[in-house]
């Protein structure tokens, strides 16, 4: 069982706060994490992986202590059995996709395993290309394969399908679901996609300002949340606002995306009860 109880000071959208989370996940279980940007979702994954050293708390996997600040114990990330799919993919640019996967297994060379995963994520034709020659979606699939290849006990996926279109997203979710069934890791999945969460997760934690706002099953929590997303196209970008054309009409939003230009597709929050 992955057990975690941490408290760590963090900056949230310019204001000071703390990442304060307590949770447990059994092997074979998936806990999805949702919440607004800057809620501390990625920081939570980083704390589990050991990439962030919480000021206070404990992290244990089965009978292994990964962190216990009261005993000044901190197991470095490279000694923890984790697989991490980063939001920016973090593929090594000097290695091909095949070499990126081999790197994860080195010094053992298991080409059959590498080839199997490359086939599963549908990158056979791109296996000997370097990441710079691949699209965002292809890089994201390679990053997912690399996170899975060592069969880690704890799988940490930070929006692993965000760059994929609908059909491919569904296919990759199926690949991941089969993998979870076969190898039974404990998984933390950061996602903004309610359908993805409903399909993959056993539990759902909604975070806000570093704290757990709600915990339950995806069925319970997603039914309560009236916020859905609607696809649209950006038609105007202001300094702190934008105008998006959706199927339900034109809407002006009081923020602008960190990336994106006029003409780009984006998702607009849509309140089922109140409308746009």
């Amino acid at each position: 069982m992955l057990s975690l109880s941490i408290n760590h000071p963090l900056q949230f959208a310019g204001s000071k706060g703390a990442l304060t989370v307590k949770m447990t996940i059994r092997p074979g279980e998936t806990l999805a994490i949702m919440g607004p940007s800057g809620a501390g979702k990625t920081s939570l994954l980083r704390a589990v992986a050991g990439l962030l050293k919480p000021r206070e708390g404990q992290v244990t996997w089965q009978d292994e202590t990964w962190l216990d600040t009261s005993q000044k114990r901190f197991l470095p990330p490279y000694k923890r059995s984790v697989g991490f799919a980063f939001q920016d993919y973090a593929l090594f640019p000097h290695l091909t996709i095949r070499e990126n996967l081999r790197f994860a297994l080195a010094p053992i060379r298991e080409d059959a395993k590498v080839d199997e995963l490359i086939t599963l994520v549908q990158l056979t034709d791109f296996a000997d290309q370097k990441p710079a020659h691949l699209s965002g979606g292809q890089q994201q699939r390679a990053a997912l394969a690399r996170a899975l290849i060592r069969k880690p006990n704890v799988l940490l996926l930070d929006e692993p399908f965000s760059a994929l279109d609908g059909v491919l997203r569904h296919k990759m979710q199926t690949v991941l679901r089969d993998y979870l069934k076969r190898f039974q890791p404990a998984m933390l999945l950061v996602s903004h996609d309610p359908k993805e969460v409903a399909r993959l997760a056993d539990g759902l934690m909604i975070m806000e300002n570093g704290k757990m706002r709600q915990m339950g099953t995806p069925g319970e929590l997603l039914a309560q949340d009236p916020i859905e997303k609607l696809s649209g196209k950006i038609i105007e970008l202001g300094e702190n606002s934008m105008v998006v054309l959706t199927d339900l009409g034109v809407v002006r939003l009081p923020f602008r995306p960190s990336r994106g230009e006029v003409g780009d597709e984006m998702e607009v929050p849509f309140d089922l009860e109140k409308g746009l």
Partner: peptide, 20 residues
Amino acid sequence: SYEEAAFTLGKNRWQTYTRV
């Protein structure tokens, strides 16, 4: 994230430094 990815793939600091 390059060195963080290498860490989560089981490589220590020296391996991360020399190989990534």
